[in-house]
């Protein structure tokens, strides 16, 4: 079975991108959207998420470990490609490149984002509306969050497209074209959710 390790790892990488990381991303964007309702609602939601039973176990098993595996293996995958969009400027080749670029941006963003919120929380800071408002009051950080969130959403939406190919769900060219449209809609919808949340803090 040793020779099938690569097969297993790549399929695991693909699966983790959607379950649980992708699901978590959607959940995270949607819950934070409470910020558009008001300070109270956001704090209540953040409190609820932050005080779930077995929080550290859940965080580790659902977020940190899968993300760590996906990110480290993803970096390896990204850097074994020799991108050639200048010679082959096809749409899917650009998506291939962007999937890798947004993966790296997302990694930088997530590292910073976790540092600023969860690690700060471990040192006794409270994660609430005020905290995000302080962070986003800097125009640089606001821009950084916009880029990071859009990257993560693009990476997830386009990743969903390739997930469906990787597992043999969308086989025919036509189903793949329709999946492209569906994932574009997912990208736009989640981007709306993410950006409107950010705007609620300024």
């Amino acid at each position: 079975m040793a020779s099938n390790r690569e097969f297993f790892n790549r399929r695991l990488h693909s699966l983790l991108g959607v379950i649980p990381i992708g699901i978590f991303l959607v959940q995270h964007l949607v819950v934070n959207h409470y910020a558009t309702v008001g300070v109270e609602s956001f704090n209540k939601a953040a409190n609820f998420m932050g005080n779930l039973p077995f929080r550290y176990v859940l965080e580790t098993v659902i977020i940190y470990l899968p993300l760590l595996f996906h990110a480290i293996y993803g970096l390896y995958i990204a850097f074994t490609a020799k991108n050639n969009t200048s010679r082959f400027g096809f749409f899917r080749n650009w998506m291939f490149l962007l999937q890798r670029v947004t993966g790296v941006i997302t990694l930088i963003f997530i590292a910073w984002h976790v540092w600023e919120t969860r690690v700060a929380a471990a040192f006794g800071n409270e994660v609430n509306f005020q905290m995000m408002q302080d962070i986003l009051s800097s125009p640089f950080m606001f821009g950084f969050y916009i880029v990071g969130i859009i990257s993560a959403i693009f990476h997830f939406a386009n990743g969903l497209w390739s997930f469906m190919v990787s597992w043999g769900i969308t086989v025919s060219p036509r189903s793949q074209v329709i999946a492209t449209y569906v994932t574009i809609v997912i990208f736009l919808a989640l981007s709306y959710v993410g950006i409107s949340t950010l705007l609620a803090f300024v």
Binding site: R11, F88, F90, N93, F96, Q99, W161, V165
Partner: peptide, 8 residues
């Protein structure tokens, strides 16, 4: 599994 779907 090494295919990354660039579809070139």
């Amino acid at each position: 599994v090494n295919c990354g779907n660039s579809q070139n």
